[in-house]
Simulated assay, not measured.
Amino acid sequence: MKDLMLSIIIPVYNIGPWIDRCVESVLPAVPENGEVLLVVGNSFDDSNTRCETWEKKNARIKVLHQSGRGLADARNCGVVNSRGTFLLYIDGDDFVDTAQLKWLLGQLENMDSRVQVVMTDYRMTDTSGSLIEEINQIGSQIAFSEDQSLLLQALKKKKCFWNVWRYLYRWDFLADNKIVFLENTLSEDMDYTTQVFAAQPVFAFAHCPFYRYCIGRGDSLMDRPSLKRLEDTVTHCVSGVLRMKETDAPYVSAFVAQYQFEYLLNLALCVELPEEDQQAAFALYRATRSVLREGCDGTARLFSYILHICPIPILAETFHITKMLKRVFKGSHRRTMIEKGY
C-alpha cells in the first residue's frame, strides 16, 4: 500500500506534564507526509501553550481547537480535519515506543490494500514508563499477518481489546460506515469498537506492542471510579452485546463473551463508589443482569443464575476483594521480577 498517509490524533486537556513526552516519542516515527493533530480543549494548565510551541517547531504538527468538550468530541474533531489514509489515536498522557511504531508503519507500505483495521498488542506501564503488564492477545509469534482467523484467537483471550489506540483505522472505512465517537459519555471506546467490529472490517495483526498505556496518574479519569463511569460502561456492555448479536460476524460469540466478562468485572466497582451512589449501582446491575443470558459462554450463564439468586451487594464485595488480592499478587510478582533483573 504505497504512498499511504498517516494521521495521528492526540486529544490534549490538562496534561501539561505529559504531552511533551508523548509528542517526542511519536514524532520521529511519523513519515514526512504524515501529520500529528493535537486537539486542544480549554485547559487551565500550560497544555495548550506547549502544543502551540510544538506546532511552531515542526510542520507535521497541527493544533486544532475542539468544537465542543470531552475526549469523544476531540477525537471526532481530529478525524474531520485529518488527511490520512490511516488514523491512529493516541492519548496525550501515554506514549509510544518510537522504533516499534516506525517498524509497524513500515509494514503498512506492503500490506494488502483491502485491509481496513490493524490490531496490535500493547504494554501497560506506570507513569515513569516501567512495565506493569504485557497484553499479548495476538502473541509474540505473530510479527505481522493478514490471517483473519487470528481475530477469533485474540478475542478468546480475556483481555481488554476495545481501547481504540491499539488499532490503526483506514479513514474511508470509518467514513463509509459512519463510525464516530459517541459524545457526552464515558468508556466511549467500547461503543466505538462495537461499531467497528459490527461493520466486519478486513483485519491485519501485528504483535508489535508500540503503545505504552500509562496508569496510576491519579488525576486521570480512569483512576477515579464514579457512578457515571459505571453506568456508561454497563450501558456500552449491554448495547454492544445486543448490537453484535444482530450481525453474522464469525466472531460474535467471542465478542459477546468479552463484553459479558467486562460487565462482571465492573461489578466490583459498585462497592468502590461513594456510599451514596452504591444503591443506584446495585439497582443498575439488577436491571441489566439478563445480558449474561445472551450468547453461549458458560461462565456468563452461570453468573446470570448467581446474580438472580444471590444478593448483588455481597457479590460485588466478593468481586472487590478478589480484585484487590489479584493486585497484591501482581505487585509482588512484579517486584520479584525486578529483583531478578527481568
Rank of each mutant, 00 (worst) to 15 (best):
A74E: 07
N163T: 05
D46R: 02
L315G: 02
M337I: 07
K62S: 09
L315N: 03
L269H: 12
L131V: 09
C296I: 00
K156G: 15
M1F: 06
G216S: 12
R75K: 13
R224L: 07
L273R: 11
L307Q: 01
A204Q: 07
D172R: 15
C214W: 09
Y169I: 00
Q107K: 14
L269W: 12
K178E: 03
Y211E: 05
K158V: 02
E146I: 09
S220I: 03
Q116N: 06
L292T: 00
V202Q: 11
S145R: 07
R334D: 05
F44I: 00
F319V: 03
R166I: 06
D45M: 00
R243W: 08
A59E: 02
K326Y: 02
W18S: 06
L269K: 14
R327Y: 10
H207C: 03
R217H: 14
S253Q: 12
S7M: 01
L242A: 13
V256C: 12
K56T: 06
I215L: 12
L284P: 02
L105F: 09
I8E: 02
D147F: 09
T235K: 06
D189P: 05
F161E: 00
G70L: 01
K56E: 04
L6T: 06
T85I: 02
V202R: 12
E146L: 04
G129Q: 08
T85K: 05
L71V: 10
V63C: 12
S128W: 15
E275D: 08
F261Q: 11
I142S: 13
F282E: 08
K245Y: 08
C296P: 00
M111W: 05
A143Y: 07
A281I: 01
D112P: 02
R60T: 00
K157H: 13
F95A: 09
V96D: 04
I306T: 09
D223S: 10
E32D: 08
Q200C: 12
D172A: 11
I15H: 11
Q260Y: 15
T193H: 12
G78D: 06
L269E: 01
M324E: 08
R293Y: 15
F144W: 06
V328T: 04
R114S: 10
G341M: 14
A175W: 08
Q200F: 08
S145V: 03
H65A: 13
Q107I: 00
M337H: 08
A283S: 13
E134N: 12
A199R: 02
M111R: 10
L315A: 07
S128Q: 13
W103Y: 15
F282V: 10
G41P: 04
H333W: 10
Q141Y: 12
L227W: 10
Q278V: 01
V180M: 03
I312Y: 06
R243N: 10
